[in-house]
């Protein structure tokens, strides 16, 4: 049951993109298409689960003072492994994700989960947390990617097959460029908050937009105090 709870929280309640607003660099940069979003999400999920497992299993061995460098080494190792594997076995995807794979190292979600969860919980729960957060991240990226690709290209193309086409519209190239990332994220965040406000009203409660749209899970800046 706890496994399920830790898993499910990443999908909606603590969705990394729409609720925690973490990992914005890849969320804005690679979501130009559904294909890229999925690739980035799967790669980040893999790294997240692996790093959670390792960090959780060595959590008693790592002295608190050097835990951040230790986490970074573990994460960087898995990122490099993903980079090499993707380059060798999924070359096309590797080409389109390019620079963003090495950047998973500094993806705040991964270090954030290592610090906030895996270093304090047993392996089993850390796997659930990693899977849930990773899937939530992938889901968020894919929604953003779909939104931008439909508006910017007029179609969704996955692995060379056109999966979905909107007829009779002039693609808004802007949505695929960098500003489109911010616009899409803003619209979707607003939409999600609106949905929550509606459902809170139905239940008779009131909704306040999350005051914690910040790095509340990350305690790095408290380190040393």
């Amino acid at each position: 049951m706890r496994f399920w709870n830790e898993f499910i929280k990443g999908l909606w309640k603590e969705n990394p993109i729409f609720r925690l607003v973490l990992g914005m660099c890849p969320a804005l940069a690679v979501t130009t298409s559904v294909e890229n979003s999925l690739g980035m999400g799967v790669a980040a999920t893999f790294v997240l689960v692996c790093s959670n497992i390792v960090i959780s299993s060595i959590r008693h061995l790592i002295p608190a003072k050097v835990r951040i460098p230790c986490f970074i080494v573990v994460i960087a190792t898995f990122v490099t492994i993903v980079d090499l594997l993707m380059n060798g076995y999924a070359n096309e995807l590797h080409k389109s994700l390019g620079l963003f794979i090495p950047l998973i190292v500094v993806n705040c979600i991964i270090l954030g989960r290592a610090e906030a969860f895996a270093s304090k919980h047993p392996i089993f729960l850390s796997i659930a947390d990693g899977l849930g957060m990773g899937l939530g991240f992938t889901l968020g990226l894919t929604i953003l990617g779909a939104f931008r690709e439909i508006l910017g290209e007029g179609s969704i193309t996955i692995w060379g097959d056109i999966g979905f086409q909107v007829g009779g519209m002039q693609p808004m190239v802007l949505m695929i460029l960098a500003p489109g990332g911010f616009i899409a994220l803003g619209i979707l965040l607003g939409f999600m908050n609106h949905l929550q406000a509606m459902s809170a009203k139905k239940r008779g409660g009131s909704f306040e937009p999350p005051a914690h749209l910040d790095c509340r899970h990350c305690t790095i800046c408290k380190f040393g105090s």
């Binding site: 060595i58 061995l61 790592i62 002295p63 050097v66 460098p69 230790c70 080494v73 573990v74 960087a76 190792t77 490099t80 492994i81 090499l84 594997l85 380059n87 060798g88 076995y89």
Partner: peptide
């Protein structure tokens, strides 16, 4: 601690690099 972790990471990476 850091040395051991880096050593393990290094060996692992060398292995994957060789295989890929």
């Amino acid at each position: 601690t850091l040395l051991v972790i880096c050593l393990i990471a290094g060996v692992l990476l060398a292995f994957v690099n060789q295989r890929t």
